[in-house]
């Protein structure tokens, strides 16, 4: 029997990741629902304490609530870690190349980021349509997610999710390559690197802040995604599954 003709593509790897629909597609909805419940309780409690939510100052305060972004970010990073740490050995068992697995994982992360973006756009639409859920509740119309402007919301959620998943993936790959010390060393190295960069840039930080443009964040996210994906491939190329 000779070699087969069809080589699995990165799209097959995407399928491998997203086939567990409940974990990938339902869990984030449950997290958003939980955040919505907590936000609603807090908002109603504030209203009962006499805070007028129709007030512009109160609405401005409510827009400072990044709960949904924070609540999902941990889940998103964990998805990225698991996408590599547990799926990579299975992917090799099925006969995938490391390159194909890395590209497929990046594509899968992009599919999940697009799904998250669609959820947030739909939620923003509902939030604005219902006058903030009929009770002055700010879940998605918050500063961290573009303050109700869909032109900001889409790149923030898509690139933010993809960047966090890519960071998770590179940590998963470091764990596969060097086990726990690998992931820990990478974490420490990133922390020290960021601290040093901040230290070096400190004298010019006011100038940078003055010149800051929002699109810089998008460029930074794309750079993080590219670097993390390259790092993932680099770690996985040298990894032996044992």
């Amino acid at each position: 029997m000779s070699a087969v003709a069809r080589i699995p593509s990165p799209v097959d790897v995407v399928r491998m990741h997203v086939v567990k629909r409940r974990a990938v597609f339902v869990t984030p909805l449950l997290i958003v629902a939980a955040v919505f419940v907590v936000t609603t309780i807090i908002s109603l409690a504030l209203q009962r304490l006499g805070t007028p939510m129709e007030d512009a100052a109160a609405a401005d305060g409510a827009r400072n609530n990044p709960a949904v972004a924070w609540a999902l970010s941990g889940f998103v990073v964990s998805l990225g870690v698991m996408a590599v740490s547990t799926a990579f050995p299975f992917s090799l068992a099925l006969g995938t190349t490391r390159r194909s697995f890395t590209v497929g994982t990046l594509l899968s992360n992009a599919v999940i980021a697009a799904y998250f973006t669609a959820i947030f756009v739909a939620l923003l639409g509902l939030e604005l349509l219902t006058g903030h859920w009929f009770a002055g509740i700010h879940l998605v119309d918050v500063y961290a997610l573009g303050a109700g402007d869909v032109r900001y919301l889409v790149p923030i959620v898509f690139l933010g999710t993809l960047a966090l998943m890519s960071i998770g993936s590179v940590f998963g790959a470091a764990w596969i390559r060097f086990a726990a010390p690998g992931a820990a060393t990478l974490g420490v190295a990133l922390g020290v690197g960021l601290a040093l960069a901040l230290l070096l840039a400190a004298p010019v930080l006011p100038d940078i802040a003055a010149a800051f443009r929002v699109w810089w964040l998008a460029v930074a996210a794309v750079a993080v995604i590219a670097l993390a994906s390259a790092g993932t491939l680099l770690f996985l190329r040298g990894a032996s599954v044992r």
Partner: peptide
């Protein structure tokens, strides 16, 4: 990293 060969293996 040889896709043709790896896809022929389990």
């Amino acid at each position: 990293e040889n896709g043709r060969i790896l896809s022929s293996m389990s």
